[in-house]
Write a protein that binds this DNA or RNA. Structure first.
Lengths: 149, 149
DNA sequence: CTGACTGCAAAATCTTTGCAAAGAC
DNA sequence: GTCTTTGCAAAGATTTTGCAGTCAG
């Protein structure tokens, strides 16, 4: 994983290349997605930013516009599962998958080379340029299995 | 894959078990998802139903309510991505995973034994009692790659 | 300076809800 | 008959847009 500053430079260069300006708001969205692991709706981000940067401001429309911009450049990925709305995550990170316990909500991240490799093969087979993948295995974790026999 | 009538019986029993009524509208949504391979927004379904059953009617709110109902019972699955809104598919068929184009919203289903088997192994490794799993590969499909160089 | 970006308010969508009438059992 | 379900219209949410003022380059 590259450092924040390196990634920020990449972002700045990309903006320059497209005659777009580097603004406080754009950095805020970029940084907040970088700093926080997870998937966020535009509103989630608005709240996170208020908490983590009380001195700065950004409006909801700007968050939407910035996320679209970042998504076009593959700096963020969007996906939405279950709940309403689209969710965004920082896209310049290693892929990872999840095991989710439906009883206690525990979340285990894992990374499996066999699956990673197989996913690439599948994407290739369908001529897909893979930008992200999510795999969620839901079930009941060992602790909860012991609790409820 | 079971026959329509068998599946319909399952659906009826499920409704009865929950003191819910079997109505023309509920069957319409169920049947339309069964008859049409693919992933549909509530509005898509409304249009499909108008085309395929011009004599029957169903309102948009009822489609939303019925889809939520069907989803709770795992009779349909929902997915949402790229384009706006959630999409629903008939859920009582073989397990499969998805390739999703984030630009045009195209969705390709695939099934891969290597991945299925590996998922079971991973669940076992973490002592998880797997109840479900979903895998989505997001990316850019061949058509969209050609469009944006 | 100049053109792009932001925030506001308002519009366009998309989804849910309240309620009277109709329908399943 | 009773209690759910439906359709309508209206309310809520979510996302996008127009425009004047602000700001980066």
């Amino acid at each position: 994983m590259m450092t924040y500053l390196t990634l920020l430079e990449t972002f700045k260069k990309l903006l320059k290349k497209n005659a777009l300006k580097f603004t406080q708001q754009r950095e805020l969205v970029f940084k907040t997605l970088y700093d926080n692991e997870g998937h966020f709706t535009p509103e989630d981000l608005s709240i996170l930013i208020k908490e983590q940067h009380p001195d700065l401001t950004i409006s909801i429309p700007t968050i939407y516009r910035t996320l679209s911009l970042l998504e076009e450049s593959n700096i963020v990925n969007s996906l939405s599962f279950g709940a309403k709305g689209k969710k965004y995550e920082f896209g310049l990170k290693e892929h990872h998958d999840h095991l989710i316990c439906t009883q206690c909500g525990k979340l285990i991240e894992f990374q499996d080379d066999i699956i990673e490799k197989r996913q690439e093969e599948i994407a290739r087979k369908f001529n897909f340029k893979m930008t992200d993948h999510t795999m969620n295995i839901t079930g009941i974790c060992d602790v909860c299995q012991a609790k409820t026999p």
